[in-house]
Amino acid sequence: MPRFLAALCALLALALASPPQAARAQATAIDVAATRIDRFDVGTPAGGRYGELVFLGGLRLTSTDPAFGGLSGLRLSEDGRRFTAISDRGHWFRGALAYDGRALAGVADVTREPIRGPRGPLPGRRGSDTEALEIRGSSAWIASERVNEVLRFTLDKDGRAGPGRRVALPEEARKAPFNEGFEAIATTNGGALLMVAEKFLEANGDNRAFVVGAKKPFAFSVRRTEDFSPTDLARLPGGGFVLLERRYVPPFSLTIRMRRLDEADMRPGAVVDGPVVMTASLIQTIDNFEGVSAHRDASGVTVITVVSDDNFSRLQRTLMLQFALPD
Results as ranks from 00 to 15, higher is better:
Leu5Val: 14
Ala10Gly: 11
Leu11Ile: 15
Leu12Pro: 01
Ala13Asn: 00
Ala15Val: 10
Ala15Thr: 09
Leu16Trp: 13
Ser18Thr: 07
Ala22Ile: 11
Arg24Trp: 11
Gln26Met: 14
Ile30Arg: 07
Asp31Leu: 14
Arg36Thr: 14
Ile37His: 06
Gly43Ile: 06
Thr44Gly: 04
Ala46Cys: 02
Gly48Trp: 01
Tyr50Ala: 12
Gly51Ile: 09
Gly51Val: 06
Glu52Ile: 03
Gly58Thr: 05
Leu59Trp: 07
Arg60Ile: 03
Phe68Asp: 06
Phe68His: 06
Ser72Asn: 02
Ser72Leu: 01
Arg81Val: 05
Phe83Glu: 02
Phe83Asn: 05
Leu97Tyr: 11
Asp100Cys: 08
Ala105Ser: 15
Ala108Lys: 15
Ala108Trp: 11
Ala108Glu: 15
Ala108Phe: 13
Asp109Lys: 09
Val110Cys: 12
Arg116Thr: 15
Pro118Ile: 05
Pro121Met: 01
Pro123Thr: 00
Arg125Met: 05
Thr130Arg: 02
Leu133Tyr: 04
Glu134Gln: 14
Glu134Arg: 13
Arg136Met: 09
Ser138Ile: 10
Ser139Phe: 15
Ala140Ser: 15
Ile142Asp: 11
Ser144Glu: 05
Glu145Ser: 07
Val147Pro: 00
Val150Leu: 03
Asp156Asn: 08
Lys157Gln: 13
Gly159Pro: 00
Gly164Thr: 00
Arg165Thr: 13
Arg166Gln: 13
Ala168Cys: 04
Ala168His: 08
Leu169Arg: 00
Glu172Gln: 12
Ala176Phe: 02
Pro177Ile: 05
Asn179Gln: 10
Gly181Cys: 03
Ala184Gly: 07
Thr188Pro: 06
Ala192Val: 02
Leu193Met: 03
Leu201Lys: 02
Glu202Arg: 11
Gly205Trp: 00
Arg208Glu: 01
Ala209His: 04
Val212His: 09
Ala214Trp: 07
Ala214Leu: 08
Lys216Thr: 09
Pro217His: 07
Pro217Lys: 07
Ala219Met: 12
Phe220Asp: 04
Val222Pro: 00
Ser229Gln: 15
Asp232Gly: 15
Leu236Phe: 04
Pro237Gly: 10
Gly240Phe: 09
Phe241His: 07
Leu244Pro: 02
Arg246Phe: 14
Arg247Cys: 08
Pro251Asp: 08
Arg257Asn: 08
Met258Tyr: 09
Arg259Phe: 10
Arg259Cys: 06
Asp262Ile: 04
Glu263Trp: 05
Ala264Lys: 15
Met266Leu: 07
Arg267Ile: 08
Arg267Asn: 10
Pro268His: 06
Val271Glu: 09
Gly274Ala: 03
Val277Gly: 12
Gln284Pro: 04
Asp287Met: 13
Asp287Thr: 14
Ala298Asp: 14
Val303Ala: 10
Val303Gly: 08
Asp310Val: 09
Leu315Val: 11
Thr318Val: 09
Gln322Asp: 11
Gln322Ser: 11
Gln322Gly: 07
Pro326Met: 10
Asp327Phe: 10
